[in-house]
Simulated scan of single mutants.
Amino acid sequence: MNDDKIKGPASYFPSIEKTYGQPIEHWLGIVRAMPDARHMEQVAALKSGHGLGHGHANAIVAFVRAEQQG
């Protein structure tokens, strides 16, 4: 069994980079710059302001929120 496979929100990162043409740090930075916004507000900002799909936006927000919780 191979345990090297990336799991969770980060598993979307290669697809996000390919689909939207920006490195993942670009998208993470956008979410990190709005620390007081609620989860769905951050998702909505990525969708409406940057054209990301819901699943990709949600994965980015979930990753940043988990990172901020330690």
Rank of each mutant, 00 (worst) to 15 (best):
K5D: 12
E67W: 15
G55A: 11
G55H: 10
G29R: 09
H26T: 00
D36C: 06
E17F: 03
S15T: 10
G53S: 09
G51S: 05
Y20F: 12
H50D: 00
G53C: 01
Q22W: 01
R38Y: 12
A62I: 04
G53H: 04
V43L: 00
P9H: 07
S48C: 06
R32L: 07
H56F: 10
T19C: 02
G70W: 01
G70A: 14
H50Q: 10
F13S: 02
G8E: 12
E17L: 05
G8T: 13
A44E: 08
Q68I: 02
M40Y: 15
F13P: 00
F13Q: 01
A45W: 08
I6Y: 07
S11C: 05
H26V: 00
I16C: 04
A59I: 00
M40I: 13
P35S: 05
E17Q: 13
G29D: 10
G21N: 07
W27L: 03
K47R: 15
I24F: 06
G21H: 05
V31N: 01
I60L: 09
F13R: 02
S11R: 08
P23G: 11
P23H: 14
A37D: 11
I6V: 15
H39Q: 13
E25T: 13
D36K: 13
Y20I: 10
A37F: 14
E41Q: 15
K7F: 11
M1R: 13
N58L: 05
E41R: 13
F63T: 06
V31Y: 03
Y20T: 11
E17M: 11
A59K: 06
A37M: 14
Y20A: 04
D3V: 06
R38M: 13
R32H: 10
E25P: 00
S48K: 08
G49R: 04
E17T: 11
H26K: 03
G70E: 06
I16R: 02
P23V: 15
P35N: 05
F13M: 05
K18Q: 09
L46Y: 09
M1P: 13
F63P: 04
A37Y: 13
G29C: 12
L46G: 04
Q42A: 13
I6F: 10
R32C: 04
V43N: 00
A57I: 03
A33Y: 04
V43I: 14
K47H: 08
W27Y: 06
A45C: 05
G55W: 05
Q68L: 11
A33V: 05
I6P: 07
K18F: 01
F63K: 14
V31H: 01
H26M: 01
M1A: 13
M1I: 00
A44M: 10
G53P: 04
L52H: 08
H54C: 01
E67R: 13
I6T: 15
G55N: 13
S15V: 06
E25I: 12
A44S: 10
H54S: 10
A33I: 02
D4F: 14
S11N: 04
P9V: 02
R65C: 03
Q68K: 11
K47W: 04
H39R: 15
A10L: 08
P35L: 03
L46H: 09
Q42I: 12
L28E: 11
M34Y: 14
F13C: 02
F13K: 02
S15M: 08
E25D: 11
G8A: 08
H26Q: 01
M40G: 00
S48I: 05
A57P: 08
G49P: 12
Y20N: 07
